Computed example of a mutant assay.
Amino acid sequence: MRITIDSEVCIGSGQCALTAPGVFTQDDDGYGTVQPGSEDGAGDPMAREGARACPVQAITIADD
């Protein structure tokens, strides 16, 4: 799977990082980012839950 966050849509609520801190974090401005090395999401079963927690649906998970 491949995880991306649309920075134009993200509002920085932090729900992704709270739900799946092993996959998501927040940058210096408070917007969601994918943890380095976690772009494929394979290592954390909470990746999809973190995406679902986004209130503006800025996170996309695509199955390869």
Results as ranks from 00 to 15, higher is better:
Ala53Trp: 04
Asp28Ala: 15
Gly14Phe: 06
Gly37Cys: 13
Thr19Ser: 08
Val56Lys: 06
Val34His: 04
Arg52Ala: 12
Gly50Arg: 02
Gln57Tyr: 06
Tyr31Thr: 09
Ile3Glu: 01
Ser38Met: 12
Thr33Gln: 15
Asp63Gly: 06
Val23Thr: 14
Met1Pro: 14
Met46Asn: 12
Val9Leu: 07
Ile5Tyr: 03
Gln35Asp: 09
Ala58Val: 00
Gln15Cys: 10
Arg48Cys: 01
Gly37Gln: 13
Val9Ser: 05
Cys10Trp: 02
Asp64Asn: 11
Ser13Tyr: 07
Val9Trp: 01
Cys10Asn: 05
Asp6Ile: 01
Met1Leu: 10
Ala42Pro: 03
Ala20Gln: 04
Gly30Thr: 10
Thr4Phe: 00
Asp64His: 14
Gly14Pro: 11
Asp28Tyr: 07
Glu49Leu: 07
Ser38Thr: 06
Ile5Gly: 05
Gly30Phe: 04
Gly43Trp: 08
Gly37Val: 08
Pro55Phe: 10
Gly37Glu: 12
Asp64Val: 11
Phe24Thr: 03
Thr19Val: 07
Arg52Met: 08
Pro36Met: 07
Asp28Thr: 13
Ser7Lys: 14
Glu39Trp: 04
Ala53Tyr: 03
Ala20Cys: 10
Cys16Gly: 06
Cys10Glu: 06
Cys10Ile: 04
Asp28Pro: 01
Gly37Ser: 12
Ala53Phe: 04
Met46Cys: 08
Arg2His: 11
Gly12Cys: 07
Val23Asn: 00
Gln35Trp: 09
Ala42Arg: 12
Glu49Val: 00
Ala17Ile: 07
Thr60Pro: 01
Tyr31Arg: 10
Gly12Ser: 10
Ser13Pro: 01
Glu8Val: 02
Ala47Asp: 01
Ser38His: 07
Gly30Asp: 11
Asp40Phe: 05
Pro36Leu: 09
Tyr31Ala: 08
Ser38Tyr: 03
Thr60Lys: 10
Ser13Asn: 11
Cys54Glu: 03
Gln57Glu: 15
Ala58Cys: 08
Gln35Ile: 13
Ala53Glu: 08
Ala20Asp: 07
Val23His: 01
Cys16Ser: 06
Gly50Leu: 03
